[in-house]
Computed example of a mutant assay.
Amino acid sequence: MKRLLRNVLRSSWVQRAVGFLAAEWLRLVWLTNRFSFEPRDVYELVEPQQPAIFAFWHGQHFMTPFIKTKQSHRAKVLISLHRDGEFNAIAAERLGIGTIRGSGDHGSAFHRKGGVGAFREMVRALEEGYNVALTADVPKRSRVAGLGIIMLARESGRPIMPFAMATSRFIRLKNWDRTTINLPFGKGALVGIEAVVVPPDADAETMEKLRAELEANLNEATRRAYAQLGRPQGAAHG
């Protein structure tokens, strides 16, 4: 029975259907939540620094396609090769975001999970003027920023823009990253934190320092987003 269910979930028509439904659900959530922005002129501040690397946490990612508010904001997002990634990729593309498939983890599975090719494609996308969005934490290590995104910033010369998006109404799953399912008919918040810039000659010590800074900035952005919505407990994890 489990094998049959797994095969059904892997079928292209099921993946397309789930991706379509997910995209339309997220569009409904975006349209029916009244979003506030911190700082208020966040887009005016960020646009001169584009193309940039937009960073967010696993499990807090569903609303992130909507940071793209103009056709001129060309963007691609890194999505894993895992089966669940297919649904996310279809949804992202339906919402106007290009996809790069592979792993952001620079651990032992980096080569096997398509990490090398994805890394090169992200560098190339930034060179071509695309913004690139990806989770700062790697699978199974929620809210611990990895070095992959720091390496990308060093190689590309582009700044990392940490941000968080939250809604006042949500469901939290009990999985490894405590995924938040955003719900319609409430309030929303987008919080951007000061960019993290990685020098091209950054050594291991500097990269670790900037990794920790990015981690702290993302936690602060998440805390502020939920606090604005009167849901400070929403930022808690664990």
Rank of each mutant, 00 (worst) to 15 (best):
Met1Ala: 15
Lys2Asn: 14
Arg3Met: 07
Arg6Ile: 05
Arg10Trp: 11
Ser11Trp: 04
Val14Trp: 02
Ala17Arg: 14
Ser36Pro: 00
Glu38Trp: 14
Pro39Arg: 08
Pro39Asn: 11
Arg40Asn: 11
Glu47Gly: 00
Pro51Glu: 00
Pro51Arg: 10
Trp57Val: 01
Trp57Asn: 03
His58Gln: 02
Phe66Arg: 05
Ile67Gln: 06
Thr69Cys: 04
Lys70Ser: 13
Arg74Ile: 11
Ala75Thr: 10
His82Val: 00
Gly85Tyr: 05
Asn88Cys: 01
Ile90Thr: 12
Ala91Gly: 05
Gly96Ser: 07
Ile97Asp: 05
Arg101Phe: 04
Asp105Met: 05
Ala109Glu: 15
Phe110Gly: 14
Met122Trp: 06
Leu126Thr: 07
Tyr130Thr: 00
Val132Ala: 04
Val132Pro: 03
Leu134Gly: 02
Leu134Gln: 04
Val144Phe: 10
Ala145Lys: 12
Gly148Asn: 09
Ile149Gln: 03
Met151Glu: 15
Glu155Phe: 09
Ser156His: 01
Ile160Glu: 00
Ala166Lys: 04
Thr167Leu: 02
Arg169Phe: 10
Asp177Pro: 03
Pro184Leu: 03
Phe185Asn: 03
Gly188Trp: 02
Ala189Asn: 09
Gly192Asn: 09
Ile193Ser: 14
Glu194Met: 06
Val196Ser: 08
Asp201Arg: 11
Asp201His: 12
Ala202Ile: 02
Glu205Asn: 07
Lys209Phe: 07
Lys209Thr: 15
Arg211His: 08
Glu215Tyr: 11
Ala225Ser: 13
Arg231Glu: 14
Pro232Gly: 08
